[in-house]
Amino acid sequence: MQIPLILQFVNLLASLLLLVVFAMLAQRRILSLINLFAWQGGILALSTFVVAYSTAQHHLYYSAGLTLILKVLLLPWLLHRLIRKLNVRWDVETLINIPTTMLVGIGLVIFSFNLAAPISQLSEGITRGLIGIALASVLLSLLMMLTRRKAVSQVVAFLSLENSLFFAATSATQGMPLVVEFGIALDVLVATFIFGIFFFQIRETFESLDITNMEKLKDD
């Protein structure tokens, strides 16, 4: 079966997105993690743009622009500023057992493709198979939140989760209504600011951004 060129391109971008999430999962340096996050945003904006072009959905152009401004420029810039102010720019995180994490990640990808298989059957044209990739990225970002111990990298994982969801919304469907997308973008932006406030409060109180210091609240 001949696959249209444009669809091949979207599929290529989707696989790149998945690759970036894997790279983030294994990345130990906080600075590189933020740069990877910016790349992820860039791929997302490009894929949204391509989908907008191929389906002639004008409001998707706005989404693409919003993604570019928010996720490629504004949020990475904010994070860079934050880590400079917090003096954690060159921090390296000790991750336990990257190979095992990677294997679990591969398992999650297989699981999500299976879960999404019946849905992929339903979708026609451009969207086929992309839901599986989106779901896999969501689960991988969740895995990343679990394995990280530094507050900053947990937040990057959270934002990557948001990116994966956005990818699901624009590429698997034809983009959510614009008012909803604006609402989501606003929430993400406010959340990042609040995270920023938190970093300072946490460091002031615990003298480190390591969350292992904070496991005091337990039942019993």
Binding site: F198, Q201, I202, T205, F206, I211, M214, E215, K216, L217
Partner: peptide, 10 residues
């Protein structure tokens, strides 16, 4: 702004 309240909020 106590350590416990920060942890709870996080």
């Amino acid at each position: 702004r106590t350590p416990a309240s920060l942890e709870a909020a996080w």
